[in-house]
Design a protein around this nucleic acid. Sequence first.
DNA 1: TAGATTGTTAATCGATTAACAATC
DNA 2: TAGATTGTTAATCGATTAACAATC
Lengths: 211, 211
Amino acid sequence: MKSISSSVIRRLPRYYRFLSELDKKGIQHVSSRELAKRMCSTASQVRQDFNCFGEFGQQGIGYNVKKLKDEIENILGIKCHYRAILIGAGNIGTAIANQVVFENKCFDLVGVFDKDEAKIGQKIGELDILHTDDIESFCSINAIVTAILCVPKSEVEELSERLYNIGIRSFWNFSHFDLNVKFENVIVENVHLSDSLMQLCFRITQKSNSL
Amino acid sequence: MKSISSSVIRRLPRYYRFLSELDKKGIQHVSSRELAKRMCSTASQVRQDFNCFGEFGQQGIGYNVKKLKDEIENILGIKCHYRAILIGAGNIGTAIANQVVFENKCFDLVGVFDKDEAKIGQKIGELDILHTDDIESFCSINAIVTAILCVPKSEVEELSERLYNIGIRSFWNFSHFDLNVKFENVIVENVHLSDSLMQLCFRITQKSNSL
DNA sequence: TAGATTGTTAATCGATTAACAATC
DNA sequence: TAGATTGTTAATCGATTAACAATC
């Protein structure tokens, strides 16, 4: 398998989602042209993208949906079920747990923590909300790979240090605290919603300037 | 002003956030080297990025934080206060409204809608939650630029058509429904949280494979 | 066979990095 | 003046697009 470039990797989740849809519908083959249309891309790019990991296409017919989907699943490591904890059971934490994490095969959410006493004992999904003081003891008896940070920026500095100290090396970070700058050799996937909103703002501005 | 490439645009919100921080701290100048460190980038790239919109740097001293921040503010159109409505007052919608939209100067959130009768009349921030049936009448007396879609994928198809029909041409979309494919000449900023989670999954997988 | 579509090479395009004179 | 740092050009690198022979 040739190495996969970073721009291909960024596109893999979308390919995966679309191929899953096709697979559910029972569609067995799809052409690069159709995939491109759906991805807002070009047929050439789709073929180039898939070229680097084996041969799933047949001339005149297209790509085998199921095989291609399974291959991307392997590359991404979906089905690995990495064990995760979530910290911050506010609106965003609750939404993320219910609408994204529980729906997903990549990660098993096994613990939810909050520092607000009023929330302790309430549930998110099937999980009791535990106190953040108990993170260390919880993690000492549960091997945890990833922490999902849904707490305000001001709390992330101290929290991330504690998590780092108990061996957690990957983070899904919803705050603006810059974990990459604080730690080396740590995997950080940032979700900067306000950046996304500013991008939208820019595009509206650009459009109205061009009228 | 030279034209701004799309990769520069993607970085502008982060520059803006960092420059705002420096400005709040009263720091007046910053070098490309420092900015690069913070951006996980290179000094060369920072200089190249700023080169395309005027001259804010002084040899030997660095960039004027305030001027540079204001310029980016203008380019992005922050302070335009585009009027927006949000549809779907669940966990994600509530979190987005409180933690992102109300905190932001780009958009003025002026209406929140949900189809769940039980939520009608409750408040998000200072706004009463209204019924989605009332979107058309609300928008006929309030000029709305943008819709923030926090409803399940299954509802977006019909909803987006209604919004399109009353003239809304930009969307901040939290569902996986593909508005770009449905409409032309519409600005869509997608937030695909599950894609982000898959990226994280991939990076963990990649790291454990390389050990 | 004719039509469709892949796999792959080559060409183009754009983004990043390196280098250094200019200048504060 | 010496040190720091920009602005800008040139070189490199990588990603996208075009083209077409191979083949189902």
